[in-house]
Amino acid sequence: MLQLSGNNEPDGAPSTLLDLRRGDAAILDRIDLPGDEARRLMELGFLPGARITAGFSAPGGDPRVFQVDGSEIALRRETARLLKTRPDKGTRRAAGARIR
């Protein structure tokens, strides 16, 4: 079943990495963290404009592995919540992309 990536929130409600389920992708908009912490995430690849795909997770969904800039980084929900995203327009998930 083809599905547009990103989410279908109405404009105005910010979406975050938390909203991504496994296989979903989004574009990072901004990181709502103080300078030092944000920098650490940016060094790992979480840069505004980067495409982030949600991967596997621990049972229960927390923490979850995110594929970004060639690496796989695991984040807790409390961090994922602070990474604001915008939909990844222009790409539709191909049939083989979801690994079920």
Binding site: P34, E37, R40, E72, A74
Partner: peptide
Amino acid sequence: GSTQFLLEM
């Protein structure tokens, strides 16, 4: 403090 958990796989 508010240190975030990050783990590279």
